[in-house]
Design a protein around this nucleic acid. Sequence first.
DNA 1: TGAATATTCAACCATGTGGTTTAGTATAAG
DNA 2: CTTATACTAAACCACATGGTTGAATATTCA
Lengths: 120, 120
Amino acid sequence: MVEYSSHLDAVFHALADPTRRAMLGHLAARELTIRELATPFRMSFAGASKHVRVLENAGLVRRTIRGRSHLCRLDAARLAEANAWLRRYERFWSAKLDALEALLLEEDLAKEDLAKKVKE
Amino acid sequence: MVEYSSHLDAVFHALADPTRRAMLGHLAARELTIRELATPFRMSFAGASKHVRVLENAGLVRRTIRGRSHLCRLDAARLAEANAWLRRYERFWSAKLDALEALLLEEDLAKEDLAKKVKE
DNA sequence: TGAATATTCAACCATGTGGTTTAGTATAAG
DNA sequence: CTTATACTAAACCACATGGTTGAATATTCA
């Protein structure tokens, strides 16, 4: 097991993987079992289970064992810590906030286009 | 060199190391050369230089070569992107639960899943 | 010119990471 | 009791990471 000197090490490491970020996204909707978390991904169940463990070790996910199922729920406290760290640099980007908002808007529009494409 | 599917992969990975976070902290005060960035740390100069490279590849630092010195400055745009990602979970740590925000988050997640499907 | 400085590059090492497969442990259901 | 389900554990693999050292390159200074 890796020892982290700061929560931020573990949290940012956990967030640096798209599978794990997507898992957090799904947990934002509701609590999910390991199997439910694993299903959307094209990887072995054991592999997905290891990703959940990384999220759990980073304190981003809490697990409740209920019978043979492990129910996972999001715990956002560590996300708040990461956000607090990032916000210390806010003055460096707030000057260009309009540009960022424009960029995010464009990304949203791109996603909408993708949604349209899939429907077709 | 690692290929990242999203900026967030590279940015969060860069932030997951305390040396690199400290370097960003120093760059928040003023522009610094590689040597100035390296000095505070108990590691070889080449080692520190590699950390700067990671920050640069993540788009967090811009380099200007000036004679034999490489001047580095913070570029916060990618930090803003990371912050924007984190803030989508804000409702989970800020007590106020805004129904509209929750709805928007769920919509965003649906779009992301679609984007992933299209990539595959 | 020659020496010192600032930096990268290349090779190397130990350990970490994301992934797999196979086996093992509980628990639930027939 | 037996079988299916949910999950972890362990062993393994290829490759990335963080670190080192030593040599190479470019620039400045005396």
